[in-house]
Nucleic acid binder design. Sequence first.
DNA 1: AAATATTAAATGGTCATTCAAAAAATATTT
DNA 2: AAATATTTTTTGAATGACCATTTAATATTT
Lengths: 191, 191
Amino acid sequence: MGRKRIRDIRNEELIEATIVAVHRHGYGVVTMAEIAREAGASAASINYYFGSKEGLMEATMRHLLTKLKDAMIQGYARAKTPRERLYAVMDANFADDLYTVEQCSIWMQFWANAPYSHRLSRLHRINRARVRSHFLTELNQLLPADQVEPARQALQCYMDGVWLQAAQSDLILEPQAARAAAHQVVDLVIR
Amino acid sequence: MGRKRIRDIRNEELIEATIVAVHRHGYGVVTMAEIAREAGASAASINYYFGSKEGLMEATMRHLLTKLKDAMIQGYARAKTPRERLYAVMDANFADDLYTVEQCSIWMQFWANAPYSHRLSRLHRINRARVRSHFLTELNQLLPADQVEPARQALQCYMDGVWLQAAQSDLILEPQAARAAAHQVVDLVIR
DNA sequence: AAATATTAAATGGTCATTCAAAAAATATTT
DNA sequence: AAATATTTTTTGAATGACCATTTAATATTT
């Protein structure tokens, strides 16, 4: 059992270091050496665990996507009505441990670079489709068919836009206020 | 006069080539050689005109910002009411010659990289403040004071989010439909 | 001729990745 | 328990590729 543990611990440490380093230097220019220094390891050991820089980036994005997915599933479990489930999608995106400058920043870096990496774009596509499908399922319960797609577009764009602004912000974010604002937007869209 | 002309012609050609090349390869990894090839010139001549790669990127962003600003001023001139002026801001963002995959993609690249470049972040800040102020001016005419800021946030995030999605799209964009959808969002927000 | 524009080639630097060897952890035997 | 063997982990240094920028020389325009 010991064998597995070390690998898992290193993986987590290195991914956390990647998030910090990418936020600090930018996805395009961050170096393996900088990430390694942040993790207190060597660049060579990163390749030992992740194979390559791209492998590390993919693992990091996968880690963030999993966090987001888990938050969403948890919210869904509690929600009883379609409207509450829309709230839940928003609340997951603006959860206390996800809606931080650091993480919004890295999300944007990944979005910007996904089109140029086969492995990143795959993850990106899957996540986007999942969010889209959640929105559509609930909106179909609440709106006439011809209003569903515009409403979905409005909600999903709003969500993306808030993260995008958050990534640029030099203020401390207020997740609670973001959730309240998002609920208001939901209310606007579904009546 | 002749002296100025050649320089202007080259500037435009090189900036157009930059837009194409950055869209194709990504901001972080595009090389001077690729941009030069796209423009049918040499990498050395780009430095002759723009001093450095960062100078070229700044000039390219400035070019796009100017186009956006001009489109907005033009729309403002025609608009008579606060609501029409809100439409005008949206219409500028989704104008036929601005709302293309190529340009949305490059906008996102710039957004993602602005925090790491003094020169880019300056431009970015100025543009964002200008859009914000336009929105606030009009919304103040239309809404009670306490609803103005949430409404601005919703509109600006929606605008950014649409561009962000457009950048990822592999479909052909429909600027006219985007404008219509944006008008609907304005209508939702101001009543 | 003078000024301006262009580029091929050189320069100097950076960086991801590999590799071989050391170190640490774990398993096996005595 | 101790000693030894085996596997896993770590890293310094080497490798090879790539790239922005400079330079010096050439071409073009005025």
